[in-house]
């Protein structure tokens, strides 16, 4: 594959001993809208966080734009799950969006006029500019999601990670987000998002990663969403896999033998 945006190589992830992702391996080109699809508890969010190295894998590695993610963090943007933060937190809409202008380097950089302008534009494009001075506790669910999207837009990235941006939002917000996704794609950006609604996958995404603790299939949406693949992801449970997982947790067993060369 040329122009890879993400290269996930054999990653295995575990939480308190029990594996939640087994040996996931796929590549993603640039300039696509890609969805991570799978039932509840299939490791979608974990996969997203592992790619960004927020969660550390037990084994395997991830390359973003052909390099270690730490070297390209200024090219990525992240929309976390809306429920993952406390919306009673005393902070205004504008302050949240300005976080999109913070960067890893330049530890004590001050917010400039240009940053504020970018944040305003981002709010404008999610139709939230009139709410810029509101406290986030006063927002509806859909508005909260739009603020998170605006923060990601303010990051001016090439690769966008979004965790369930369509979860629990109103129709108007869904439409706005969809427009933004398509616009990002037009600009040649790559978007990888966790999605829960099977019905809309075909209309939204070029690429699909079908997940259920292991990779079921990854590739062009039409090729991935076959009945066989869907059955494999959503239908039969792999009870043996779960049993082995429980055993690993019980015995505190390593997921990889130390000298196993993974590279």
């Amino acid at each position: 594959m040329e122009n890879k945006s993400i290269d996930v190589h054999n990653i295995t992830v575990s939480y308190s001993g029990a594996p939640v992702l087994w040996d996931v391996d796929f590549e993603l080109p640039t300039g696509v809208l890609a969805g991570i699809i799978g039932p509840n508890g299939s490791g979608k969010t974990t996969l997203l966080k592992t790619i960004m190295n927020i969660v550390k894998p037990v084994s395997g590695n991830v390359k973003v734009f052909d390099s270690n993610i730490d070297k390209v963090r200024n090219r990525i943007a992240y929309v976390p799950q809306r429920e993952s933060v406390d919306w009673q937190f005393p902070i205004s809409v504008m302050e949240v969006v300005l976080m999109g202008r913070y960067s890893g380097k330049n530890l004590f950089k001050r917010t400039t006029k240009a940053d504020k302008e970018i944040a305003r534009e981002a709010l404008e494009s999610v139709r939230m500019l009139e709410f810029k001075d509101r406290q986030i506790s006063e927002l509806s669910g859909g508005q909260q999601q739009r603020v998170f999207i605006a923060r990601a837009l303010a990051q001016k990235a090439d690769l966008y990670f979004m965790d369930e941006p369509f979860a629990g939002v109103d129709m108007a917000t869904e439409k706005t987000i969809l427009e933004i996704l398509l616009k990002l794609k037009d600009e040649g950006k790559t978007v990888l998002l966790v999605h829960h609604d099977l019905r809309t996958v075909r209309e939204f995404f070029d690429y699909t990663i079908l997940l259920n603790t292991r990779l079921v299939a990854a590739g062009k949406t039409a090729e991935v969403l076959t009945e066989e693949n869907l059955n494999s992801a959503y239908g039969a449970r792999l009870t043996l896999l779960e049993e082995v997982g429980k055993e690993i947790k019980k015995k505190d067993f390593p997921l990889r033998e130390k000298d196993f060369d993974d590279k």
Binding site: M52, R73, Y78, M99, G104, K105
Partner: peptide, 11 residues
């Protein structure tokens, strides 16, 4: 406010 986000920008 949002620890994961702070991690994502490399802090």
């Amino acid at each position: 406010f949002n620890e994961d986000y702070a991690k994502s920008i490399g802090w």
